[in-house]
Amino acid sequence: MSLILPKFEYYKPSTLDEALELLAKFKGDARILAGGTDLIVDLRSRIKKPKAVIDIKGIKELHKLEYIEGKGLIVGATVTLNELLEHPIVKSKFHVLYDSVRQLADMQLRNRATLVGNICNASPAADSAPALLVLDAKVKAVSKRGERVIEIKDFFKWVKKTALEPDEMVTEVFIPEPPEGSRGKYYKATRNVEDLAIVGVAGLVAYPNEPSKRIVRLAYASVAPTPIRIYEVEELFKRDEPLPKLIDEAVNIALRKVSPITDVRGSDWYRRHLVDVLTRKLLIELFLEG
């Protein structure tokens, strides 16, 4: 690995229009720079070789972190993960997001890294992704041609591939108010504190003891080419049957839906084992707390 970064042009626009202009001009040969904790690593290892790097930290309107009571939370593209963790509402209302971001990288990196960068990098292991999936987050994508909202479930297309067009960028993520009475949690199995997930599981549960109102959502990192939410388990939990039986069935469904690979972090067999164990642990804990 060469230690010197490859050559690129550096731009630091102060308005969104300028940034969009640059993206249009470079036609896919430019990369957005937010916290740089993925991009600079990818530049150094020559995984990415853009002609231009567009630093968006000079665009004031992207540094927006706003909670609207009854509606949800808006997280702008330059809000760092530590800023998110320090916002009291994130801890008190968006448990599963708080829990996953707390386990993402380390304190020094979270002073730079952003939530939007985590999803735009589109790693199958992105720790915030399962949380955003169970919370039904919406991603705002903007280009010179206009803007659109992409549901988070449609945002991840493949390993390191998002639904963004080359001239588009994300300005913010909107996270709707979690369902009333819900609790959430994220479990991450890792080799050491500062590593990507071998498997990550996010869960959200509401009204565990009232089958008709009961809500159960599960999403995973590092078990498929993209982070995935397993919708098939959700209907199951509306049944008025003993929870241990439903948990068994949910685990079976999850195991059918995942397609883990073998890599340095773990074998596909071990990942399946973790899906089994962590899904049970997470659901049991959320049911008992609820």
């Binding site: 630091k12 020094q108 002073n111």
Partner: peptide, 21 residues
């Protein structure tokens, strides 16, 4: 983390910060 410095008061890993930034 060996390259840590305080940038505007906060610890960051300086190998992942461009000088221009």
């Amino acid at each position: 983390g060996i390259c840590t410095v305080l940038l505007d008061g906060k610890p960051v890993k300086s190998c992942l910060v461009l000088a221009a930034e």
